[in-house]
């Protein structure tokens, strides 16, 4: 499944493809959370002139926060459990090439030095 901005000649690493798909799902859950929480709290909790005797509470929490933050928090936790245990893949992340970057740099420096020497000799 290659996107327009991806080179069809390259066989892409499944770890990259899985990570990208998982990142998109996570971004969607963030969008869902903000769309649920902020408008709900805005309409139910902002600018209310509260009468203590009629204040609506659910298990001791102001009802607007119970449905606007507490319940979405529980739903987000359930989603996280699903994501971690049933969706996210255990991809192999590969061996760490400790010192590979430094070695590559040293090799380039030596090659450049050789080139200069050769250039000087010629």
């Amino acid at each position: 499944m290659n996107k327009p901005d991806m080179d069809p000649d390259i066989e892409y690493d499944p770890v990259f493809l899985h990570s990208r798909r998982e990142a998109i799902v996570i971004f969607c859950i963030w969008v869902t959370a903000i769309i649920w929480v902020v408008p709900f709290c805005y309409f139910q909790g902002y600018g209310q002139n509260v009468d203590p005797s009629t204040l609506s509470l659910t298990i001791g929490i102001p009802t607007w926060l119970f449905w606007g933050v507490f319940i979405p928090w529980v739903v987000a936790d359930i989603f996280t459990i699903w994501f971690c245990f049933f969706y996210m893949q255990d991809d192999p992340l590969g061996e760490a090439h400790e010192g590979a970057d430094i070695e590559e740099e040293l090799a380039e420096m030596r090659a450049a030095a050789r080139q200069t020497q050769d250039g000087g000799g010629a």
């Binding site: 770890v15 990259f16 899985h18 990570s19 990208r20 998982e22 990142a23 996570i26 971004f27 859950i29 963030w30 959370a33 929480v37 933050v69 979405p72 928090w73 987000a76 936790d77 989603f79 996280t80 994501f83 996210m88 991809d91 992340l93």
Partner: peptide, 14 residues
């Protein structure tokens, strides 16, 4: 509520 999944999951594996 979404901070753990965002801060660790968005970039972590890759």
């Amino acid at each position: 509520m979404v901070v753990p999944i965002c801060t660790m999951g968005l970039l972590g594996k890759r």
